[in-house]
Design a protein around this nucleic acid. Structure first.
Length: 281
DNA sequence: CTTTGGGCCTGGACGC
DNA sequence: TGCGTCCAGGCCCAAA
């Protein structure tokens, strides 16, 4: 499911409910998702007070005094908050984890495809965690800029589309926002990554920032699975310029769909890419 | 070192 | 209605 904007949307929903509360009970309904849960997962969390919520790339970071819960939503993960006083939810087939909080709220993690994962890590060591340590800069942070992106792309022979979904290059950009960013930057997804330097890198870095920021403001994009923690749909999918719009008119140029072919679809590294060949070079 | 491809899972859409 | 096939927002890891 989720790329950076969807995970950030979930984090923003969780923050006011989690911060300052403690995990009262943790219900684990299976031993593993993509990876096994730590054997002492429940006992380490129960009773722990939550100091803050964070996010690194597509990982949610739920920081308690001792441990930080590192939580990935995978492809199909959803997080739902049931406020205090709501009747306890029925346990669904794919509801794998439930957190009962000291403030009475209940958090349920549902993940049909089970590509999500949870791990625990001493809070002071999160940056060195194997899942986290090699991730590139946060695209919305000051550490990400045209020159930084250019340096990461230098010498790369893969297509720029594949380069920007590589988490070592920049954190949190997945398949949808890669297409959308390249559209905003006017760059062809097929262009060799190493040729994106100087002004082109500047433009692409700016495009990544702008599209991710806009998507967060819209509560993310809901294609199938993504929901906010209230169960609401995101609505940025209505703002897609190219993703999933094969054959439709390009919103960035005046190409006549009857004469040209409009938005095109191609496959790169086994993933779908969408772009306008006239608008993007 | 970089790049590619397989694998992990389920469910929904589609064609017959 | 039922069955098979294909596709999906991620990412790890082995192999080339």
């Amino acid at each position: 499911m989720p790329e950076l904007p969807e995970v950030e949307t979930v984090r923003r929903g969780l923050a006011p409910v989690l911060e300052g509360a403690a995990f009262a009970r943790v219900h684990l309904r299976r031993a593993d998702l993509r990876k096994p849960f730590p054997v002492d997962f429940v006992e380490r969390l129960e009773g722990a007070r939550i100091k803050r919520t964070g996010r690194r790339a597509k990982y949610l970071l739920i920081e308690t005094h001792d441990d930080t819960l590192i939580w990935h939503l995978g492809m199909s993960g959803q997080v739902r908050i049931y406020p205090p006083g709501e009747p306890p939810p029925l346990v669904g087939k794919h509801d794998h984890v439930q957190f009962d909080l000291s403030n009475g709220a209940v958090i349920v993690f549902t993940d049909p495809r089970r590509f999500g994962l949870m791990d625990l890590c001493p809070s002071e060591k999160v940056a060195e965690h194997p899942l986290i340590k090699d991730i590139g800069p946060e695209p919305l942070g000051n550490a990400f800029s045209g020159p930084v992106l250019a340096a990461a792309l230098k010498g790369k022979k893969v297509a720029i589309k594949q380069a920007i979904i590589d988490s070592h290059v920049v954190a949190g950009v997945g398949n949808i926002y890669a297409s959308e960013s390249l559209f905003r930057a006017g760059l062809s997804p097929k262009r060799r990554a190493g040729t994106v330097q100087g002004a082109r890198a500047e433009k692409l870095a700016g495009a990544i920032k702008s599209v991710l920021s806009a998507a967060i403001e819209a509560g993310g994009s809901t294609l199938k699975d993504h929901r906010t923690t209230d169960g609401e749909l995101g609505y940025f999918q209505h703002s897609f310029a190219v993703y999933g719009r094969t054959g439709q008119a390009c919103p960035g140029c005046d190409c006549d769909v009857l004469k040209t072919k409009g938005i095109q679809h191609l496959e790169q590294g086994g993933r779908s890419t969408y772009y306008c060949p006239r608008h993007q070079r």
